[in-house]
């Protein structure tokens, strides 16, 4: 098999894996938009906050330690214990639920029936608040996140492809784990939305919140639930990206990778986020491989947006998005 074809196959596989990681971030956006029509600008920061909290709990870091020390002149930084990863994930999830409650209680419920742009602006404010709050709570150091996920070259794939094709493919173990987790997450979310009482209530609120209210569905409960689920997705994305690059404040910028995915897959479709992610991942990697060297490289960021723009021209609602028809 020609060498270039083998390289292209390797790039495609890695693009698929990268796409899954983008989709993980995009899923959080979809959930909140689907249920409440809010484009949650803070989703990337939520992933950062979740990852910061997880590492902080695992390492036994004292929350707001810097603040406490500055006010009281103390020198406390750590409790002196380490919490196992699984327990820390559960505690972090509880904190994300508390955050969802707080967001609804102090921000969203006061903005019911406001224009989407107002809600969007509120989430921008939330993003800034949460970033500063996370900094105050856990400090801005780069943290090593190790929840036991394997990382690095998958030797089995390397050897198998080498024996079969004469060239060993590089696939990162972490990407394989991320793909499995993303698949499970999507199945769980689809089952939740389609087959559970709360899921159906969520869809009812998304369709028409006034009608949902009239049949006794609590808007407050549904919104807290949706923000909690988005918090869970943010935690999963935070773990995957945090394991890859360490937990640091630029983690919030992964949201930039989710936007073209959403444009492609549609803002209201869970499978759309996955398919959009895969298309963006493969598209940008192949473009960088084939065309990048001719035009100076670093094409990935803008190519994803160009791809999304092309889709917008032909299918504004995205591949799987709901077509909105407004009659005058």
């Amino acid at each position: 098999m020609p060498e270039q074809l083998l390289f292209a196959m390797e790039v495609t596989l890695n693009g698929l894996m990268a796409g899954v990681l983008y989709a993980l971030v995009a899923l959080g956006f979809v959930l909140i938009f689907k249920a409440s029509g809010i484009f949650n600008y803070a989703q990337g920061v939520m992933a950062l906050f979740a990852a910061l909290t997880l590492v902080g709990i695992m390492e036994g870091q004292v929350p707001f330690g810097h603040l406490i020390n500055a006010i009281f002149g103390t020198e406390i930084h750590h409790f002196g214990w380490h919490v196992p990863g699984l327990i820390a994930i559960v505690i972090t999830m509880m904190i994300m639920v508390a955050l969802a409650w707080a967001v609804n209680q102090f921000v969203m419920r006061h903005l019911v029936n406001q224009e989407p742009i107002i809600l969007f602006m509120a989430t921008i404010g939330l993003a800034y608040f949460l970033e500063g709050f996370g900094d105050l709570m856990w400090g801005s150091d780069i943290k090593n996140l190790d929840v036991g996920l394997p990382q690095g070259l998958n030797s089995w794939i390397d050897e198998t492809t080498f024996n079969a094709l004469g060239y060993g493919f590089f696939i990162d173990n972490l990407d394989i784990v991320a793909s499995v987790v993303a698949a499970l997450l999507v199945v769980a979310l689809v089952v939740f939305a389609q087959y559970t009482k709360q899921g159906r209530a969520m869809r009812a609120v998304a369709d028409d919140h006034q009608a949902a209210l009239s049949v006794g569905i609590s808007l407050n409960f549904i919104w807290v639930m949706v923000w909690s689920v988005a918090g869970f997705v943010a935690l999963v994305a935070g773990i995957m990206w945090g394991s890859k690059s360490g937990v640091q404040f630029s983690l919030s910028l992964i949201a930039l990778k989710a936007l073209p995915v959403l444009m492609l897959g549609g803002f209201t479709s869970i499978p759309g986020a996955i398919v959009g992610g895969l298309i963006v991942g493969v598209g940008e990697k192949l473009f960088e491989f084939a065309i990048g060297p001719m035009i100076g490289g670093a094409t990935e960021n803008w190519f994803a947006y160009v791809l999304a723009l092309v889709f917008l021209v032909f299918r504004p609602q995205g591949l799987f998005g709901d077509k909105i028809i407004e009659r005058v």
């Binding site: 390797e10 790039v11 890695n14 990268a18 690059s245 990778k257 940008e284 960088e288 490289g297």
Partner: peptide, 19 residues
């Protein structure tokens, strides 16, 4: 020359090329 776009969280293409 292998440029990496800001912020640089995703560098798979560059390192596959190096490999």
């Amino acid at each position: 020359l292998l440029p990496v776009d800001h912020p640089g969280q995703e560098q798979k293409s560059q390192w596959l090329q190096i490999r």
